[in-house]
Simulated assay, not measured.
Amino acid sequence: MAYIKLHSADISAAVKVGLIGAGWMGAFHAESIARRIPGAILAAVADPNVGAAEALATSLGIGKVTASADDILADPEIDAVVIASPARFHSSLITQAAAAGKHVFCEKPAGQGLEELDAALVAVEDAGIHFQIGFNRRYAVDFQAAKKDLAVGIVGQPQLLRSLTRDPGDGNIPNAGKVPSWTIFLETLIHDFDTLNWFNEGSEPVEVHAVADALVEPELRDRGFLDTAVVTVRYSNGAIAVAEASFSALYGYDIRGEVFGSKGMVQAGRATETAARRFTAGGMSADTPRLNVELFHQAYTDELADFAAQVRAKRDGTAPPSGPFTLTPGAEDARRALAMALACIESVKQGGPVAVPPLDKAGV
């Protein structure tokens, strides 16, 4: 269907972004683009649930709404798209966006299989567009501080690495029966895999050994839903890493990372919203966030600000933003993390270690 015209919008020379997917994460990204990203404009919203798209667009003063991503991809006024649709559509939408010459920011995972993702990334390379994957932890201040130390060799040779994700819960995971069985690897631990790869940059993951179970809701075990996992990763430089995840951290949203090396250690992440602590007769306490968009509010904003800056540089033929270390997660990062997640699934099925497929340079 064509755009539903809600009202006129002032479209300037800034990067004009179309949102594909008006769900919870898409809505947060939409608000960031519309209200917090200088030099970017949210120009249109697409979602098969056009009512949700209309409600989101109206709340943000956006004048173009559609039920079809095709309308956004065919719009010559739009420079770039943010893909926040269900993961099963990501690779095909990346391919379509590349064919339409639109720069792409895609939520993780960028695909559900290496073959489909490789085809999408070939399309990206052929089109010469900017592609970015939504690994937001790279943009958190404490993770960047740790990465800066690693980049200048503060910890020496990395030997042991750790990354964890604990989603808040109370022992009853909402809609758990409707969540795809391998979500803990494909959509949760995939963040930890990218963090480990980024912290150990220059080395490739070569083997994973994953153990996972339904410890929070055991009755869902037979239906294939896994809520707890631990993964051991071996890297080509000899480093050994551990990634863990749980869908029921009673105390709040908890994300942490660590690298121990020959000269020392760096840590990042915390389970509290601020560093403030309260000490009373009842003991020590601190506020903990319940949502990822609370703990990583600035990181989610900064990743889109970086995307807009990278698109402007590519569009205008200027030098892209740069810093003391690699920041922007791109095609190779998307594929490397997905390869690890898929290898973890095989490891659980086989009950032992599984080799991680190497990067196919021709495919990315």
Results as ranks from 00 to 15, higher is better:
1 M>H: 15
4 I>H: 13
8 S>W: 06
9 A>Y: 02
12 S>F: 05
15 V>F: 11
16 K>G: 04
23 G>A: 15
23 G>K: 09
25 M>V: 15
26 G>F: 12
27 A>C: 10
29 H>E: 09
30 A>I: 12
31 E>P: 03
31 E>K: 14
33 I>M: 10
41 I>L: 09
41 I>P: 00
41 I>F: 07
52 A>Q: 13
54 E>G: 13
55 A>H: 09
55 A>F: 14
64 K>T: 15
67 A>D: 14
69 A>Q: 15
73 L>E: 09
73 L>M: 11
75 D>N: 09
77 E>V: 14
79 D>Y: 11
80 A>E: 05
83 I>E: 07
83 I>D: 08
84 A>I: 04
85 S>W: 10
88 R>L: 14
90 H>N: 11
90 H>V: 13
91 S>T: 14
92 S>N: 13
92 S>A: 14
95 T>L: 08
100 A>E: 06
101 G>L: 12
102 K>G: 08
105 F>C: 07
112 Q>D: 08
116 E>M: 03
120 A>D: 04
121 L>W: 04
123 A>V: 06
123 A>T: 04
128 G>R: 02
131 F>N: 03
135 F>D: 02
140 A>Y: 01
140 A>R: 02
145 A>T: 10
147 K>D: 00
152 V>S: 06
155 V>R: 00
157 Q>E: 11
161 L>M: 09
161 L>S: 00
162 R>N: 02
163 S>R: 00
163 S>F: 02
166 R>E: 06
170 D>N: 08
172 N>P: 00
177 G>D: 05
180 P>A: 06
181 S>P: 00
184 I>V: 10
184 I>Y: 00
193 F>P: 04
194 D>C: 05
195 T>N: 06
195 T>E: 06
198 W>V: 15
198 W>R: 07
199 F>K: 02
200 N>P: 11
201 E>T: 10
203 S>Q: 10
204 E>T: 15
205 P>K: 05
206 V>K: 11
207 E>S: 08
209 H>A: 11
212 A>G: 08
213 D>S: 09
214 A>G: 08
215 L>T: 12
216 V>R: 14
218 P>I: 12
219 E>G: 07
222 D>P: 00
225 F>C: 02
228 T>H: 11
229 A>M: 12
229 A>R: 04
231 V>Q: 06
232 T>K: 13
233 V>R: 01
234 R>V: 02
235 Y>R: 05
236 S>L: 08
241 A>Q: 02
243 A>Y: 02
250 L>W: 02
253 Y>E: 09
254 D>E: 11
262 S>K: 04
262 S>Y: 14
266 V>I: 12
273 E>M: 15
276 A>D: 07
278 R>L: 10
283 G>H: 09
284 M>W: 05
286 A>E: 04
293 V>M: 12
295 L>H: 05
302 D>C: 03
302 D>F: 07
302 D>S: 08
303 E>R: 04
305 A>V: 04
305 A>D: 11
311 V>G: 14
312 R>H: 14
314 K>W: 04
314 K>R: 15
319 A>W: 01
320 P>I: 01
321 P>V: 03
323 G>T: 03
324 P>C: 04
325 F>I: 01
326 T>Y: 03
326 T>C: 01
328 T>D: 01
329 P>N: 06
331 A>Y: 00
332 E>V: 05
333 D>A: 08
336 R>P: 00
342 L>P: 03
342 L>N: 01
343 A>T: 02
347 S>P: 02
348 V>R: 00
356 V>R: 00
358 P>E: 03
